[in-house]
Each structure stands twice: as structure tokens, then as C-alpha cells.
Simulated scan of single mutants.
Amino acid sequence: MRPFERKFPPVVVAAMVGLTLAITGGVLVVAQMGEKQSLAVPTGFMVGAIVLELAAIVMLVTIRPFAWDRFFLVLGWTLLAYVLQSGIIEWSFIINDVPGRPLAVLTAGLVVFATIVPLMIAFTVARYQSVAP
């Protein structure tokens, strides 16, 4: 069976919704910076993002057969790039004295960003590779 004829679980859909929640939560935190902040909604968004990322991972590991060698090759390099990006953004939060609780929520969003985007990229590449049944 050719790769484009196979049906896959909605890994990218779950991951994209999770990424959207993480970014929205981060925007809400930054929008309230300097005011008395309620972190309930942004924290809920981050929890939702983490749950959806874990759901995407669970769906991904159940796929058989799959081009795992290609997946891990792409995942490794994209993870390196996105961890570096997230580290630089985190550093900017720290040197700009973002307070503890908002920083924790923003850091959770950066962790989701740094791991979920490489997962989506690697899955998208590997799903179109031919594998033996």
C-alpha cells in the first residue's frame, strides 16, 4: 500500500489544537502583564495543550507500520532548532524580569511549542515514506 493511501489517526489535528491553546494562553498572560493577573484561564489552556500533546503522542505510537527511522531523524533536528528558539525566548522573559507565576505559565507554553511543532513536522514527513507491511 502506498503511503498516501493509508489512513492515519488525527495526530496533527490534536497537536495543532494543542499548539493553538498554548499560544493563546501565552498571549493572554502577556496581554495582562503589569496588571493584577488572573492566571486561571491561561493555565487551563496550558493544561489542555499538554493533554492534547500527550494524546497526539499516544495516537502516534499506535501506528503500525510506520517509518520510525525517518521520523526520529527529522524529530531530532527539528527538536534541536525549536529548543534553541524556545531557550532564547525564555531567556528574554528572564532578563525582562517576568514574575514567577506568569513565567511558569509562559515556560509551559514554550515547552509545548518546542516539542509539539517538531512532532508535527516529523510525523508529516514520516507518514509519506514507504514502509514494509
Score class of each variant (00 low, 15 high):
115 T>K: 06
53 E>N: 12
71 F>S: 06
58 V>E: 07
123 F>N: 14
128 Y>R: 07
72 F>A: 11
79 L>V: 09
89 I>P: 02
93 F>D: 02
127 R>M: 10
91 W>T: 15
43 T>S: 13
55 A>T: 08
129 Q>N: 12
74 V>K: 05
61 V>Y: 12
108 A>W: 13
25 G>V: 03
3 P>A: 14
30 V>Y: 14
76 G>Q: 14
74 V>R: 07
61 V>A: 08
28 L>W: 01
99 P>Y: 04
41 V>Y: 09
67 A>F: 05
17 V>G: 15
42 P>F: 05
95 I>H: 00
48 G>P: 11
102 P>K: 03
122 A>Q: 05
78 T>H: 08
122 A>E: 04
84 L>W: 10
121 I>N: 10
33 M>W: 09
96 N>F: 01
39 L>S: 01
25 G>A: 07
101 R>Y: 05
120 M>C: 10
10 P>E: 08
10 P>M: 09
48 G>T: 03
109 G>I: 09
78 T>S: 11
89 I>S: 10
100 G>P: 03
95 I>L: 01
97 D>A: 06
101 R>H: 06
3 P>S: 14
80 L>S: 04
51 V>M: 14
12 V>W: 00
58 V>H: 05
13 V>P: 01
12 V>L: 04
132 A>W: 02
94 I>Q: 00
4 F>A: 14
130 S>R: 07
3 P>G: 12
68 W>L: 04
108 A>R: 13
35 E>V: 15
16 M>N: 08
4 F>T: 15
46 M>E: 13
128 Y>V: 15
122 A>C: 02
101 R>D: 09
97 D>G: 05
17 V>H: 14
91 W>R: 08
9 P>H: 11
111 V>A: 02
73 L>A: 09
17 V>W: 14
77 W>Y: 15
76 G>N: 14
132 A>M: 06
102 P>H: 03
48 G>M: 12
67 A>Y: 08
97 D>K: 03
83 V>N: 10
88 I>E: 06
79 L>K: 15
32 Q>Y: 04
13 V>S: 04
100 G>C: 00
92 S>C: 04
4 F>W: 15
77 W>E: 11
115 T>I: 05
39 L>N: 01
54 L>D: 06
18 G>N: 10
98 V>L: 03
50 I>G: 03
47 V>T: 07
46 M>S: 08
129 Q>G: 04
25 G>L: 10
50 I>F: 07
92 S>R: 13
63 I>H: 11
3 P>F: 12
74 V>M: 07
53 E>H: 08
60 L>V: 04
21 L>R: 00
56 A>V: 07
87 G>H: 09
74 V>G: 02
31 A>D: 01
83 V>A: 01
3 P>E: 12
43 T>F: 04
25 G>K: 02
